[in-house]
Design a protein around this nucleic acid. Structure first.
Lengths: 242, 242
DNA sequence: CGGATCGTTGAAGACTATCAAGTTATGTGG
DNA sequence: CCACATAACTTGATAGTCTTCAACGATCCG
C-alpha cells in the first residue's frame, strides 16, 4: 500500500519534496533531512478524488489524518434534523482530521469540493515518529493549536459581525489564503456554492446573493458566477472593520 | 521555584495525586506510575488567584499552560473596537492556553471569575516529557483535539440555534460539566454575569434575562440571582432539540 | 437538449437588539 | 455595620436586520 504500488509514476513525483505546498504542511521543508525523510516515508499518496467524494465520515475510526495536495475540501457535521453544517473549508497544504484524535473517531464529514489530490498520513505511525522526532511533534502540535485559533476567530466573526462584515471577512480570508500559496489574491474562483458560503458564515443563500450584488454595485468586487475579482481591497477591509 | 519553596504546606497537599480533578487533567490517574510522577514533578503549584485576576494576556509569550484546580476562568479576546469577546469558560480540571502553541504567544486573555487555584505547567519541560513519554504526548494531543471539537460545537450552536435553544444548551452544558466532576448537575451556581453569558453565546443581557424569566415561568428552571436549579431536565432537552 | 441544481431579486414577517427606566445586589469606606 | 455608590439585573416599547416565502433566470451536466 505504498505509492510505489499505487501509482504508475515514479514515487518522486508524489514525494513531499516535490509538493508545492509543503511549507504549509506537516512535512515542512524547514525540517532537517532526516526528519523530513521520516515523515515522507510514512505518507501514502492517493490517486485523485473526484469532485464531491467523501474522504471520511462522522463516526469513522481514526486511521489517517489527511493532507490536501491539490483541490478543495469542506468539513461539515449533520445535526439531529439532518441539516448540514459546514465548519471549515480547506485548501492545498491544509491537514484535516485533527478533531478525531480526542476519541479516535472522526467527528465530521470531509468531502471534496472539486477534483483533489489527497495524501494519507497514517495516525499510529505518525505518533511513533512524533516520539522519535520532537521537532515533528511540535510541528503537529502547532498545526492543531492553529486550528483552535481559526475556529475561535470564526466563532467571533459569526457572533459579533453583521452579514456584510461576515461576507467581507470571508472574501478577505479567501484572498489571504491564496496569497499564502503564492497565488493572486485578487482573482478568486469560488470552489463552493452560495449555499455553502451562507451555511458556513451563518447566512441564507439569498443574503449571500444580495450582498454579492451590493458589493458589486459599490464597485468593491466584480462577480461573474463562481469568479470574484477584488477591485477595491481597502474598501473591503473598511467593511470588515466598520 | 518549586511548590516546596512557595507553600508552607507539605508538597503532597498540592500534588496531582491529591487533586480531585486529575482524571480530567493532563496528569490523569490512568498513567503508569512513572509517567504520572514525571508530569507531577514539573508542575508548579501557585497560591490562589483572587477573583478577576489576569492569568495571561493576549500577546504574552507562551511560558506555561495552566490547569485549573479550583475556581473558574473566562477566556476572551478584545476586538478592534475594544469590545470583549468571551470564547470559553473553564472549570476545575481544564487545561488552558493551547491556542498559544501555534506561534508561541497567547491569543487571548485568561481571567479568573472567582477565587481560584491554578497550576502552572511549564511548556518547554512539558515538551521534553512528551518526547520521553508517548502516552503523555497522546494525552496532550487528545486534550487539544477535544478543544477543537468544543469550539466547533459552540460555533454550530451560535450559528444554527435560536436564542432560546442557545441558552438551554448553555445551561445543559454547565450541568453536564458539573456532573463530570461528580457534583450535582441540578443545582448550578453561575460564576459569571448575565452579560458574560450573553457575550459568550452571542445574545444581549436583556435577552438572557428575559429568557431566564421565561424558563422560570414555564417551570423548567428556578432562578435566584446566581443560583439556578433545573426543575425539568427533559423539557430543557426538548428546547435544545426543538 | 432538457432536467436539475444553483443563483437572483422582491415583499413580508420574525427574532432579537436597542433604548429607556426602574429594581436588586454587591462592595467599600466611614 | 450601615450608607452609599456602583454594578448587575429585570421588564417594557420600539426598531432594524436578516430570514422566509415566492417566482423567475442562469448554469451545469448527462
Amino acid at each position: 500500500m505504498t505509492s510505489r504500488q499505487k501509482n504508475s509514476k515514479s514515487p518522486s513525483d508524489f514525494s513531499c519534496a516535490s509538493c508545492l505546498v509543503n511549507s504549509l504542511c506537516l512535512a515542512t521543508g524547514s525540517f532537517d533531512h532526516q526528519t523530513f525523510a521520516a515523515i515522507d516515508s510514512i505518507i501514502e499518496r492517493k490517486k485523485n478524488y473526484q469532485k464531491a467524494s467523501i474522504i471520511y465520515k462522522a463516526g469513522d475510526e481514526l486511521k489517517n489524518l489527511y493532507a490536501i495536495r491539490s483541490g478543495g475540501v469542506k468539513i461539515y457535521s449533520i445535526n439531529e434534523h439532518g441539516e448540514e453544517q459546514i465548519t471549515s473549508f480547506h485548501m492545498p497544504g491544509d491537514l484535516i482530521g485533527f478533531d478525531a484524535i480526542a476519541d479516535n473517531r472522526h467527528q465530521s464529514f470531509a468531502q471534496t469540493l472539486e477534483t483533489s489530490n489527497i495524501c494519507e498520513i497514517p495516525f499510529e505511525p505518525l505518533m511513533r515518529l512524533a516520539s522519535r522526532y520532537p521537532d515533528m511533534n511540535l510541528r503537529l502540535l502547532k498545526l492543531i493549536s492553529a486550528e483552535i485559533s481559526v475556529k475561535k476567530n470564526l466563532m467571533m466573526m459569526i457572533s459579533k459581525q453583521t452579514a456584510e462584515q461576515r461576507l467581507a471577512t470571508f472574501i478577505m480570508h479567501l484572498s489571504d489564503n491564496l496569497k499564502r500559496r503564492n497565488l493572486s489574491g485578487n482573482e478568486i474562483k469560488l470552489p463552493m456554492t452560495r449555499y455553502e458560503i451562507g451555511n458556513y458564515i451563518s447566512l441564507t443563500v439569498e443574503t449571500i446573493s444580495r450582498l454579492l450584488s451590493r458589493f458589486q454595485q459599490k464597485q468593491i468586487i466584480s462577480v461573474k458566477g463562481k469568479y470574484i475579482t477584488i477591485i477595491n481591497l481597502d474598501r473591503l477591509q473598511d467593511i470588515v472593520e466598520s
